[in-house]
């Protein structure tokens, strides 16, 4: 768990690295809504499958545990 936390911290630190929030002179017509739309859909598409898998996985585990207790 400790290693995992360190990994998450390192990830957060690295993503914050150079100029993530800096102005972007090279972006094509950077409409804020469009950029947000890409960002939000990317996050939803990424989070959704992981959420579904972990949700269904946990539910199955509970079901299996419950059955094993009653056996």
């Amino acid at each position: 768990m400790r290693r995992l936390k360190a990994l998450a911290l390192a990830l957060a630190a690295l993503t914050a690295f150079p100029g993530f929030a800096s102005a972007c002179p090279m972006c094509f017509d950077p409409s804020a809504e469009n950029r947000m739309a890409f960002l939000v859909t990317a996050m939803v598409l990424t989070a959704l499958p992981l959420g579904m898998v972990s949700g269904v996985g946990l539910w199955l585990r509970r079901r299996i545990r419950k059955r094993d207790r009653t056996d």
Partner: peptide, 16 residues
């Protein structure tokens, strides 16, 4: 032609 600021984030995940 994606937002160049996104690139470094994806580099980090890729190398991870």
């Amino acid at each position: 032609g994606i937002d160049p600021r996104m690139a470094n984030v994806f580099m980090v995940t890729t190398l991870l």
